[in-house]
Computed example of a mutant assay.
Amino acid sequence: MQARIIVGGWHPALHRLEVQTLLEAAGVESEVEHPRVLRVDSDDLDVDIVGRCSSITRWLLGGGRVDHMDTEALLDTILAAPGPAPPESDDRQQSIAVRVENIDGGGVGISHSTLILELGARLATMGWAFDLQAPDYEFVVVCVGEEQAQHPEIEQLPREAHILWGLSQPADSTSITWQERTGPMRPFFKPVGLDPRIARAMVNLAHPHMPDGRLALADPLCGTGGILIEAALLGVHSYGSDLDEEMVEGTQRNLDWLWNEQDELAAVTTEVDDALDFTLDEPVPAFAFDPPYGRNSWQSEDGRELLLGTLARCFENATDDARLVTLLPWPAEHVAAMRAGKVVDMDEFHTYGTEWARMRELIESCGWTVLTTVPISVHGSLSRLLVMCERRR
């Protein structure tokens, strides 16, 4: 079965990497058709990936793809293709709604109302009931444009305007929302708190799978607990520590709040401990942490020894095939240069007062091989560099 995954969010490179990591773990190959579109061909798709990811906006099954065209030609093309028949059900008639969406400036000249009316009429003749508020399925048309995302890509990717369509199931809405999990909405808040979507992506990129099937992760610089919250929601048993007692107490307050709001959470252990000297009860396959940083940390060596010492300690507490994901302070000039279309050598940029080429060597000296990096803009004067590593054997 062919499917297309639509990636949302302000950081398409990060979230696309997250989706690709989960697909790879499931043995499913993917192809990038657009910075926000992945195509997969598999008869064994795990739809739970949609709920686990931080930014999948659509998972379109079947359907098709065409170059951008006007409304009449598009309607003729979709109607000429086989339509989705409603699944058999002994309980009731299955319901559907038609949605038309634009991303990255797509959909110029396309009449949403015409598509919804005509496609809805066709689906009605196929036996679907209609429910615009809470349908069992949605028939979705996505008009994909050519506009550059706010956070550009390091690599050149296809960006031609085109139109997709397919069958989709609405996402499960039983979890508390992303907005409800942002720092200011939690009982304990500090301005340094991590955006929940980035925290979720970090947990998924760390791939917290034990050989016996259990899920486990450690965050030795837990701060206000953003990564631990996302791990708990994903069913990942986690260990979090911080040398600052206020942070650990605040993290526990946030976790207690989460347990009052949400059922079926994985266990989390928190304690006051030094990231340079922590010891776990057993090795874990995943680490994710966000080191403390200041506005100018990218050009100051302050914090470098904490980072390297934490990496070394994680190595000692890791399984042989463990992964580690962290965020480093990064100069905003790198992202600005990419936005301007300039070809830049990231090895020349600094983090913690150290050229990236040298920092990568230092990371590897702590036992970790850098797999990939993604620059993430925070605001005008600060970016972060997400670094994904695997343990060296």
Rank of each mutant, 00 (worst) to 15 (best):
Asp76Met: 08
His34Glu: 06
Gly27Glu: 03
Val50Lys: 04
Leu45Ser: 05
Gly62Glu: 02
Asp41Gln: 15
Leu79Gly: 05
Trp59Asn: 00
Gly83Asp: 04
Glu24Trp: 09
Ser54His: 10
Cys53Lys: 03
Glu29Thr: 12
Asp76Thr: 12
Glu33Gln: 15
Arg58Ser: 07
Gly62Asn: 02
Arg36Leu: 11
Asp76His: 10
Asp70Ser: 07
Ala26His: 11
Ser54Cys: 12
Leu74Cys: 00
Ser55Phe: 04
Leu60Ser: 05
Met69Gly: 04
Glu31Lys: 09
His34Tyr: 07
Asp48Tyr: 02
Val66Leu: 02
Gly63Trp: 10
Leu74Tyr: 09
His68Met: 00
Met69Val: 15
Ser55Val: 02
Ser42His: 01
Arg58Thr: 00
Asp67Leu: 10
Leu60Pro: 11
Ala73Val: 07
Val50Gly: 00
Asp48Pro: 00
Trp59Leu: 15
Ile78Arg: 03
Ser42Ile: 08
His34Gln: 12
Arg52Ser: 12
Arg52Pro: 12
Val66His: 09
Val28Gln: 01
Asp70Val: 02
Asp44Ser: 12
Leu74Lys: 09
Val47Gln: 10
Pro82Cys: 11
Leu38Ala: 13
Asp43Lys: 15
Val28Leu: 08
Trp59Thr: 01
Thr77Cys: 02
His68Cys: 05
Asp46Trp: 01
Cys53Val: 03
Ser55Thr: 06
His34Phe: 14
Ser54Asp: 09
Leu74Ser: 04
Val47Glu: 15
Gly64Pro: 13
Val28Ser: 03
Val47Pro: 11
Ile78Ala: 03
Gly64Asn: 09
Leu61Gln: 14
Asp46Glu: 06
Ala81Cys: 14
Pro82His: 14
Asp46Tyr: 03
Ser55Glu: 10
Ile56Ala: 08
Ala80Asp: 12
Glu72Asp: 10
Asp76Cys: 06
Met69Cys: 13
Arg65Pro: 01
Asp43Ile: 08
Val47Phe: 14
Asp43Pro: 15
Asp76Phe: 06
Leu79Pro: 07
Pro82Thr: 14
Pro82Phe: 13
Arg39Tyr: 08
Val66Phe: 03
Ile56Cys: 04
